[in-house]
């Protein structure tokens, strides 16, 4: 019976059961509501963004910390940061649905919410196309099934378009630095690594076992990436500063130490495509700087 239900939801996401709605979240749990949610709390910035995209912001009663996009989200009541949720103020809002970030929020807190009878949708997009899945599922849960379908389709189309343009271009060896002290990067499992691949880039540390490994500086130099990337606030400190002094590196000699706008690539909402596009453009520029033989 469960399997049948699962297959059905694969074919018809948001398959209506009587008057209620039912979806599977990214962790395979089924979320069953008698009617679309009216009082929703989003515990991670990307979930807040998705709710706004779906045009369901009037159902959003509170958000987790750092939900700063769109600007209107900042005005909503806050219920604590990802690691330290304020269960009391969540319950005080009497939500009928909580949107959680599976690996970012504390599981114990999420289970506590469920034990109070609050349905919890766990989002965990590990691949870009899962953003579309999230849009469809949230569309169903928030009574915005049609905009969910449309936004998801648009997302998939843009993703495909970027892939068609860039994926088969000459590969570029990339070091993507997510943190400067200590130096940290991402491995092949990470969303950023997939975005790199989509743009015809190759993550030089894709082979490491941990999702966000901490690196020895000389390992970066040894793999001699053609491009070094990091995201930074405009006018903020330069996270790539330490590499700029090293001569004899392909990336420094070609001027390929590039900064991307912040947040876009790490928040799996539709805006991630802007980040991917900026990334593809950066790699494109790097290809243009290749010496002509």
């Amino acid at each position: 019976m469960r399997l049948l239900l699962f297959l059905l939801t694969l074919i018809f996401p948001g398959w209506a059961m009587a008057e209620g709605v039912i979806v599977l979240d990214d962790t395979g749990r089924e979320i069953r509501l008698e009617q679309p949610a009216e009082r929703v709390i989003a515990l991670a910035p990307h979930l807040t963004e998705l709710v706004f995209e779906l045009g369901a912001e009037h159902r959003l009663v509170a958000v987790g910390a750092h939900s700063d996009y769109p600007a209107a989200a900042s005005a909503l009541p806050q219920v604590g940061s990802a690691q330290r949720l304020d269960i009391e103020s969540i319950l005080a809002q009497s939500p009928d649905l909580v949107l959680a970030w599976d690996s970012g929020n504390v599981q114990r807190a999420l289970r506590q919410l469920e034990s109070h009878g609050i349905p919890v949708y766990r989002s965990e997009p590990r691949r870009l196309e899962q953003v579309a899945d999230n849009l469809r599922a949230l569309g169903v849960l928030l009574g915005r099934r049609d905009s969910g379908q449309q936004l998801a389709a648009a997302f998939e189309e843009e993703l495909g378009r970027l892939g068609r343009i860039y994926a088969d271009r000459a590969p570029v060896a990339v070091f993507y630095q997510i943190w400067d002290q200590p130096v940290m990067t991402v491995n092949g499992e990470h969303l950023i690594s997939e975005a790199l691949q989509l743009c015809g880039g190759r993550n030089v540390f894709a082979d490491l076992p941990r999702l966000t490994p901490r690196l020895d500086a000389e390992a970066v130099l040894e793999r001699d990436p053609e491009v070094m990337l990091a995201s930074a606030e405009p006018g903020g400190a330069d996270p790539l500063a330490r590499w700029r002094g090293h001569t004899g590196l392909t990336a420094t000699e070609r001027g390929n130490l590039l900064l991307l706008p912040p947040d876009l690539l790490v928040r799996p909402s539709s805006r991630v495509l802007q980040g991917v596009a900026a990334l593809c453009e950066a790699l494109h520029q790097a290809r243009l700087r290749r010496p002509v033989h």
């Binding site: 540390f205 490491l208 490994p213 901490r214 690196l215 020895d216 390992a219 970066v220 040894e222 793999r223």
Partner: peptide, 9 residues
Amino acid sequence: ARTVIAPEQ
């Protein structure tokens, strides 16, 4: 610390 699980630290 630099070498046990190199290139990680």
